[in-house]
Design a protein around this nucleic acid. Sequence first.
DNA 1: GTCTATAAGTAGATAGAC
DNA 2: GTCTATCTACTTATAGAC
Lengths: 192, 192
Amino acid sequence: MSPRHTDTRQRALDVALELFTEQGYEKTSLREIADRLGIKKASLYYHFPSKEALLAGIMDNLLAPVDELVAWSQTQPRTAETRQEVVRRIAAAVRGPWSRWFQFAQANEPTLRDHQKEGEQMRGRLLGLFTAVVDPDAEPRQQVRSLLALVAVHLGTLAPVTGVLPTFGITAPSEEFRAAAMDVAQELVKDG
Amino acid sequence: MSPRHTDTRQRALDVALELFTEQGYEKTSLREIADRLGIKKASLYYHFPSKEALLAGIMDNLLAPVDELVAWSQTQPRTAETRQEVVRRIAAAVRGPWSRWFQFAQANEPTLRDHQKEGEQMRGRLLGLFTAVVDPDAEPRQQVRSLLALVAVHLGTLAPVTGVLPTFGITAPSEEFRAAAMDVAQELVKDG
DNA sequence: GTCTATAAGTAGATAGAC
DNA sequence: GTCTATCTACTTATAGAC
């Protein structure tokens, strides 16, 4: 066997992730993906048996790093300090390796509701993140606050990137907004 | 002319709203809508010139009540008290007349990004709500807090309805959770 | 107002040559 | 691994009878 096989498979995953995120899974045709790769649509079927297999491949790549953080959090005690550290790590990850995950999930919410397997994978990891931060025995008040802390992180990191800040009527510089969001998140995750 | 024309048009709007919300705009075919109405697909074209016209009709019905609240808020001073009252009114409206709006918008995020006109309508009303609560001259910290207040309302009213609370690892009774969310929202919207 | 029939196009998927 | 060619099953949309 050659030192490595062709990279068409990986390139297909990259292109598909990009298009699924931009346009959604349903609206992206295999022809479109093949065109970008410079191959014919039928040739895609050599690498993936179906469109759904392409989706599954993307998910595997996307969700692996999430599992690491959740696993780590489960070794920690359920304290405000742990929640703060988890929020810090999520905030860091979201700026880097996970950034595409949220965008992809958001753009394909209806699709993931239908494709049972993939939808449950997605929800499973989200649940993992939530339970890493939400104490099931805490007061509802604190549970709401913890959930909102994750939303604040989401807001702080994604909103500047997608350029929707003006849509919210906000004019602050991105970096300042992001810092403020992190600040509020840390506060929310404390007991109160 | 008869005292009123047939109600097929309005029934079509109702059915379409329901299906678009459940399955998304793209995945709902005109045949499906027609089937539920007990007519043939082609007959739908008598009432609406295109699928997109159906979407537009739904939007008009959905967005009218939002405008009222935004208009009212613009007559008020930009104080923490006003923000609290706006949040109260949004919370009340979301439980009733607007409940379908959020579900519809969330289920059709990708679609609304493509259909320029409808997407901008939707974003316009959202911006209206945001600016009713976010003071453009406030600190980024307070802006984040105000945004999260709206999210808290969203969480408190929608989450119990859709039954996703367990997905968040939360076991509290719906009503208790909703009350806690409103509580946190009111707190976030204060100066701090 | 509703029907049948059908146009015109695109989707995902398969067979088999090279 | 990639190609050409083709299939079936849709989709939105139109024309014209009743």
